[in-house]
């Protein structure tokens, strides 16, 4: 076939801006259409369940092991000052403020982001999205809105779950080494956690969840034709998702730091 490509393809920089513009338009569409009826409640529930179910095992394992390892590694430094009794509060704060949101979101970016990217990508390639269009339903609402909302809702819940499991890991380690009771452990760790910590982590997790859903959907929904497009969509959903999560983490640490003085 004689497809000559003489049209000048835009340079790298202008391409980046075109993509950015696209992404903002995509996000705009989400906020514009997402909250208008008709609602796809059933699909939303299904997606929430899927996201939780898909990442639960890995998140449990990672959280638990992180709890154990982090406690074990922190002990020597605290022991130098004879302050091993601070371990529960140190671990509690570290888990809640940073480790849990970050671990949960990175795992979800890998598992959830890639599967959303691949699923929507293959629906695009096999014209299932077009089929929804022509049967007079808005595929954006059914596919994108539900998935973005689901991951925005589910990731914060999973984050607190990870923190909980991490604490159990820490408890196991502390009770084996120092013989601390569970009651004493939770008392001292919960004492040092503030309302700000909980709020900040929730907001962060909401942003991470939104990012994962948005990036996965954007990549899949706009995937190029051909099976190769599906793989690309899944892959860039993970890479771009993780990259954005790190940037958001750095920015939010700075931001919430302003309130902590």
């Amino acid at each position: 076939m004689e497809i000559k490509d003489e049209v000048k393809s835009p340079g790298k920089i202008s391409r980046t801006f075109i993509t950015l513009y696209d992404v903002f338009q995509f996000m705009g569409r989400f906020f514009k259409e997402g909250f208008l009826p008709p609602y796809e409640g059933k699909e939303l529930m299904k997606q929430c369940y899927d996201i939780g179910y898909r990442s639960l095992a890995l998140i449990s394992l990672t959280g638990f092991i992180t709890g154990i390892v982090f406690t074990k590694q922190s002990r020597p430094s605290l022991a130098e000052f004879g302050a091993t009794s601070w371990l529960p509060s140190l671990v509690g704060i570290a888990l809640l403020r940073t480790l849990a949101p970050l671990l949960t979101s990175l795992i979800a970016a890998g598992k959830v982001g890639s599967s959303i990217g691949a699923e929507l990508g293959s629906m695009r390639v096999t014209e299932q999205i077009d089929a929804m269009e022509v049967s007079a339903t808005n595929p954006f609402k059914f596919l994108v809105t539900t998935r973005v909302l689901a991951s925005t809702i589910t990731i914060p819940i999973l984050t607190f779950y990870t923190a909980m499991v991490g604490m159990l890991g820490a408890l196991l380690n502390v009770s084996l080494s120092e013989g601390t009771s569970a009651k004493a452990f939770f008392q001292s760790s919960l004492e040092s956690i503030t309302f700000l910590d909980i709020t900040a982590s929730t907001i962060k997790a909401v942003i991470f969840g939104f990012t994962i859903g948005m990036v996965g959907c954007y990549q899949g929904y706009n995937s190029s034709k051909g099976t190769e497009g599906v793989g690309k969509a899944a892959n860039s959903a993970v890479v771009i998702g993780m990259f954005l999560i790190f940037i958001e983490e750095v920015v939010s640490v700075q931001f919430f730091g302003l309130f902590r003085t």
Binding site: T126, D130, A131
Partner: peptide, 11 residues
Amino acid sequence: GFSFQNSALYD
């Protein structure tokens, strides 16, 4: 109504 070349059923 539009019937697709490859059927495009929701798989």
